[in-house]
Simulated scan of single mutants.
Amino acid sequence: MRELTASSDHVPVSFEVQLEVFRHQAAGLSRIRRWNGACDVSVAQHCVQACDLASPETAGYAVIHDIEEFDTGDITTPVKNTMRALGVWQRFEDEIVLPIRRRFTLLAGLKWPWPEGVIGEIHEIDQKLKATEYRDCVDLSLVRLSAGDLAEPYSDYMLPWSATKAENIFMERVRNVLPSMAMGDAGDVIEHSNCSGRLAEGVTYKDHELIADAHAAIAALMNEARQTKLRLSELEQAFKTRQEQYLRTSDGMKKMFPEQREAALQFRAQHSADLAHQSGMRNRLAFIECEIAHWQERIALARA
């Protein structure tokens, strides 16, 4: 807790240090799911989408508007309301949330306190994104809200991103919309050289970093694909070796002794679960292929 409440007025002057601080937050936020885990949308994805929907003047604030949730987690509205009723939310916000947000606002080169117009715009976007997440991505067996609790959602269907995608796009927005990050982009193009470590002609440091991130993402995805294919192969082999008598028809099961019938029912239940698992892994493989194609396209665009 000391790390959260310590004074954070000092803003690192080194661009590399500032960038690393934001990378650290991006990695954490991309792995924290919204709605206390009942939604597959990460906090990082949510911040990126808010940034993309905001006006140019508000975009920088929008991308960091939940930056403190790396430390506090995603606190749901019912919990916040309970904390307000108990009289503890204001102190939590004043002593935990706002100091963290202030630190990153100054680190981003933005104004503190936030302008009222910015706060209002982000609140409106936040509520509409919340409604969209509830419609498209929230597990309704875990969360139920009435229509009166939600704003009008956005018309576009929302799909959750992988943690890798959310982290990388979050960092892309950080570099593009935060004033303090602009200084690190100056420069920037290095002429072509065959020497090791030099960038290709017309490729900026920013593009070089994006390409490196994309290669890392592709490597991680390919490793996941290999592991998933291995598990699929093992599961398919198990299907082939299973005894047919445990998959008999209902009429056949009526002729069994009770203990045989119980074993057969358990086996059929496991078989059904394995089939569902197989389907899920195949869907995941298809998703991984799309993600790899996405990153390959980004590499091609960066090199163009």
Score class of each variant (00 low, 15 high):
A26G: 07
L150K: 00
D188Y: 02
P78T: 01
D136C: 11
L86Y: 01
W114M: 05
E224I: 04
R31L: 10
D40M: 03
L140S: 15
A276K: 12
N283G: 09
T204Q: 04
S14V: 14
K240R: 13
D139H: 09
R84L: 05
A108D: 10
R23V: 07
E201H: 09
A85Y: 03
G37R: 08
D185S: 12
S42L: 04
V177R: 00
Y157M: 14
H123F: 11
L221P: 02
H24N: 07
Q45L: 03
K80F: 09
Q266H: 13
R298F: 12
A273T: 12
W35F: 13
M222W: 01
H65L: 01
D156M: 04
H10Y: 13
R101T: 12
P153A: 06
F22G: 08
R242E: 10
M281G: 03
A26E: 11
P113Q: 01
T132H: 00
N81M: 12
L199T: 08
A225M: 14
L106A: 07
D207E: 08
I292M: 11
R91L: 03
V174C: 06
Q45D: 08
D185Y: 00
V13M: 09
Y205T: 14
L159A: 08
T228Q: 05
V88L: 07
V17M: 04
A302E: 05
Q260L: 07
T58D: 11
A44V: 03
P153G: 09
L98C: 04
I64C: 00
V174K: 00
M1Q: 04
V97W: 02
D156E: 14
A273H: 06
R135W: 04
E209T: 06
K111D: 07
A62K: 03
E124W: 03
A217V: 04
I122P: 01
D251W: 03
A300S: 10
V138Q: 02
V203A: 01
L230Y: 15
R226W: 13
D66M: 02
S146E: 15
E16Q: 15
T241I: 09
V88W: 05
F15V: 08
P78K: 03
E167Y: 00
A302D: 05
C39M: 06
S279V: 15
E152K: 13
T105D: 00
H215D: 10
S250H: 14
E20D: 14
I96V: 15
E68I: 01
A200M: 10
H271C: 13
A38S: 09
S55R: 00
I32F: 00
Q278D: 07
R282E: 13
N81W: 13
A304G: 13
K229I: 13
E291N: 02
I299W: 01
H215C: 06
R284E: 10
I211M: 14
K254D: 14
A151N: 02
I96K: 05
N81T: 11
A263S: 14
G120V: 08
Q227F: 09
E152H: 12
A276Q: 12
A216T: 05
V97K: 00
A219P: 01
A147T: 03
D52E: 15
A273W: 07
C137E: 12
R303F: 07
A38R: 06
V143G: 10
T58C: 15
E291Y: 02
V97N: 04
L140T: 15
R198H: 10
R173E: 12
V189I: 12
S155Y: 03
R101D: 11
I218S: 05
L235E: 10
E16F: 08
D66H: 02
S14T: 14
E191D: 11
L107S: 00
